[in-house]
Design a protein around this nucleic acid. Structure first.
Lengths: 342, 342
DNA sequence: TTCGAGAGAGTAAACGTTTAACCTAAGAGT
DNA sequence: ACTCTTAGGTTAAACGTTTACTCTCTCGAA
């Protein structure tokens, strides 16, 4: 009595039937066996503790029911919310997910992609990459379904899921304008980022101009979406920019960095400076006062990503529809904005 | 010309050699082929874009080079830091990781465990589960290496990786005592949690008693490690407890919740109340003032977990050594503690 | 009675690898 | 001239499934 996991053969032998029969009853195919045989097989499988080997299965049906997910940074509230959504939906549809942390490194990304191909994953979710064009070709060459979330494709026609960044930024700025602010600074994202950087700046500018408030370059500083970038951007703003009563930051992290820097200069939030952020990560609710911000429904975006990916994996049909999915954002009013008397 | 992925057979055919030969050169076995053949095979494989099929490989060598990781909550800074470490080390050693979000649900956990077994993962990391005894049996029944991180085994002898919670809590409390505080409240974790709850409370009590400060039950409130739990605990403390000048919270999240609640009652931090947290998650640096806290090296604990797991997977030898790994914690002084004049 | 159909199976190939066992020719040693 | 060894291979089984085919009954209809 070997001490290995029981296989379908063991079940078959013990039942005195062929493996084909066992396979059929395990699959619940309605035909090909009598009720008596079915019960016997099921009972025996249970007694033996038999579990089908997904690797062997995968080999024959060329489906692993596994997807790969690539993040530039797995830790980080942003990615983890996304991941939760992705995993949740995948699990519900019977898929498991392999996570990959590219650390924003091209070499690593390529290596992960190779590995995922070798492991025969059924599809890939590529999340929040800053330079969309960079992996287009490699992704397309994988010859398997891919969906982008929180980023956009370059040349290749890959489906993607995003929020309308420009519109969201415009609404954030509009909100500040409606509260009576006119001198509104912005901490923008990475200068040349075409997916999360430029559109948010464009939305800010658009709102201003629509309200006949001239856009002034001196009021915008660039960060990198991170805490310290926000802090430094605010310091620059405080030194060189004309006075302003409000700030729109292109990420919550930069908003918090900015707030902390302002606070160190003696400014009170929101008394002296109103702030709206972008993302609505958990810490937006943890800081004091809680941050007014634009909410991106990250978990939903993640589950949506799994949804469209799996749809593409399973039916070649609705393959090319729904290339673009725009998810709804929302302004969450909390404590960092003070209305200004006219 | 079929449009499928090229297999080892395609390479063999094109080279006019047998698949065995191709397999040997792909593996870089030094023997069994001439240099000429090697070069030819390598060149052909490259031209064809051949990549070995890990599924087929896994079937024959019964190793998938994949591990499974179970979290009670994948989002959450805590898990994601851990995950980063786990993934990083695993990747370095050639393993990929499947993430599972048990959502603290027994049913789901069991389902994941079954799935991981079917997918033939080589081992499992079980992270920060509150009730260690609950899955002992199931885990042991998996007949594959398992390591626990940030939790402890019940009866079964599973290896685990932790910080010394009692000692850490004692040091946090000692620190407050050294700063001159005598009336120190605590927001403890879940009341009956034997891994992160009880030991931290015990450490707090121990420090107090060692300093001849009587332990007073009225000064401790229980939370659930989460933000709102911390907030509510602080509210209870402020209403019913005798006056206190310092607080030790068993998690950063509860510390922040407590701070916010205190602030709403008009208390200034650290002027009126000193606070030390536990964990050192990212937002400890984001709140204002930044939180003084006990740092658990989460990423390192994660990579350590992968390390010992993979060691157990690869060599049956050092199998039973290193059952317990205690990682070093550290007190990080930031801005929430004010020394008290004697 | 004979035939056909369907139920209830079994056989064997296939999926893409790895690897033990075997084969053959060319030198080397005697 | 003979045997031994070794380099450079080939063959085929095995891993655990799925599934297209085939086979053999039994039963009902003509």
């Amino acid at each position: 009595m070997a001490n290995r996991e029981p296989t379908i053969k063991d079940v078959a032998r013990k039942c005195g039937v062929s493996v084909a029969t066992v396979s059929r009853v395990i699959h619940g195919l309605g035909a090909g066996y009598s009720d008596r045989t079915r019960d016997l097989v099921l009972k025996t499988a249970d007694e033996l503790g038999y579990r089908p080997n997904a690797i062997a299965r995968g080999l024959v049906n060329k489906r692993t029911h596994t997807i790969g997910v690539l993040f530039p940074d797995v830790s980080g509230s942003f990615s983890s919310e996304l991941l939760r959504g992705i995993e949740e939906e995948a699990h519900e549809r019977g898929f498991s997910v392999i996570v990959c942390n590219t650390a924003r490194d091209g070499e690593r990304t390529a290596k992960y992609l190779r590995m995922l191909r070798e492991k025969q994953v059924d599809g890939i979710v590529f999340a929040s990459y800053f330079d969309p064009a960079a992996y287009d070709a490699e992704l397309a060459a994988m010859r398997m379904p891919v969906v982008l979330v929180n980023t956009m494709p370059g040349a290749a026609a890959l489906p993607y899921i995003k929020v309308d960044d420009r519109l969201a930024a415009r609404e954030a700025t509009d909100y500040l304008l409606r509260q009576g602010h006119r001198d509104i600074a912005m901490i923008a994202g990475t200068r040349n980022d075409p997916v999360a950087g430029q559109p948010r700046l464009a939305g800010y500018r658009e709102a201003l101009e629509a309200a006949d408030v001239p856009y002034r370059e001196e009021l915008v500083a660039y960060g990198d979406f991170r805490l310290d970038g926000g802090r430094r951007a605010m310091e620059r703003l405080l030194e060189t920019a004309p006075p302003f009563t409000a700030l729109f930051a292109a990420s919550d992290e930069m908003a918090v960095g900015g707030i902390n820097a302002a606070r160190e200069r003696g400014l009170a939030i929101p008394a002296d400076l109103s702030v709206v952020g972008y993302d609505d990560l958990i810490y937006a609710r943890m800081v004091h006062p809680p941050l007014t911000t634009i909410r991106q429904p990250l978990a939903e975006m993640g589950s949506r990503a799994s949804d469209v990916l799996i749809a593409r994996i399973q039916e070649e049909d609705r393959a090319l529809e729904a290339g673009e999915t725009i998810m709804p954002h929302r302004l969450i009013e909390r404590g960092t904005v003070r209305p200004l008397r006219a």
